[in-house]
């Protein structure tokens, strides 16, 4: 067992070196080797067998998965993020009594919340949120994600965008960029309904474009029904539901017959 542990930590050191060099390809292959090696440790979840080296093993395994999560952010691979995060999660929930909490715990949990927000998986976002203790909610990393969700739901989009400047951790930037794209689509959707028209200047500022070309391209790609003329963007309004002129007779007859039948049964 000892030998394997030494092997794992040596491999992990090499991984960390590659990690700091930002050598993503090398990291990937080392990580797969590490993960295979981890399967040979019986003290890890789900077995939790007790052994003299259990604490050491658990700590190193947790460390590896934490790095794996951050690596997946760097590689911008959301599926890998999800997989690695789920592998990491038992270390946070089930090993509380076995090893001291990791300093990386809250940043990573916050990162996961952010990911769920970006992917618009709000139900899961709230399910994860329920698992956090009140102290965790006070943590800046978690708080950041929670406030983002709130602003997002309210529609205070500029608060979402300005939060990018105040990220609590460098790894958050990637997701914040993704979020900005989601926000742009949201703003476009809202503007369409809320305004009759906008001047090009205002539209540019609102949708965060730096040039007219970018705006024109975006409109052409995403919203071909918008019209740009006289220095303004005109939104094509969806047809309002007109007051009903016609009586939906067939439907009414069906309903009334249904009532009659049911009443017959009661009386």
């Amino acid at each position: 067992m000892e030998a394997k542990l030494v092997e794992a930590s040596q491999l992990f050191d090499r991984f960390k070196a590659a990690f700091t060099r930002n050598d993503l390809h090398n990291c990937d292959s080392l990580l797969s080797q590490l993960k295979v090696l981890l399967t040979t440790f019986p003290s890890l979840p789900p077995l939790y067998r007790e052994s003299p080296t259990a604490v050491h093993e658990l700590t190193i395994a947790r460390d590896i998965f934490e790095h794996a999560v951050v690596l997946s952010v760097k590689a911008e691979d959301q599926d890998a993020f999800e997989r690695d995060f789920f592998q990491l999660k038992p270390y946070y929930t089930d090993t509380r009594g076995l090893i001291p909490p990791s300093p990386q715990e809250y940043p990573i949990l916050g990162l996961n919340l952010l990911r769920l927000l970006v992917q618009n998986r709000i139900a899961e976002f709230h399910t994860e949120l329920e698992l956090l203790s009140p102290t965790a909610l006070e943590n800046p990393c978690i708080k950041h994600a929670v406030e983002l969700e709130q602003s997002f739901m309210e529609g205070a989009y500029n608060r979402v965008l300005s939060a990018r400047q105040a990220v609590p951790h460098e790894t958050y930037i990637h997701f914040m960029d993704l979020l900005a794209k989601t926000v742009r689509d949201e703003i476009a959707g809202c503007s369409e309904k809320a305004y009759d028209y906008l001047s090009i200047e205002d539209a540019k500022q609102m949708l965060m474009f730096s040039s007219d070309q970018e705006l024109a391209q975006y409109v052409a790609e995403e919203h071909p029904e918008w019209e740009i003329r006289n220095g303004c963007v005109f939104f094509q309004k969806a047809k309002e539901s007109a007051p009903c002129k016609e009586i939906p007779s067939l439907q009414l007859i069906n309903q009334t017959l249904g009532y009659a039948r049911e009443l017959e049964r009661i009386v």
């Binding site: 205070a156 309904k193 205002d202």
Partner: peptide
Amino acid sequence: VADAESIVAKAIRDGAIDATIDHA
């Protein structure tokens, strides 16, 4: 005010209120 504008815009889109905004 910027907050207010986007919040109103979202409320309009979600159908909570029936209104239009004149940005200018």
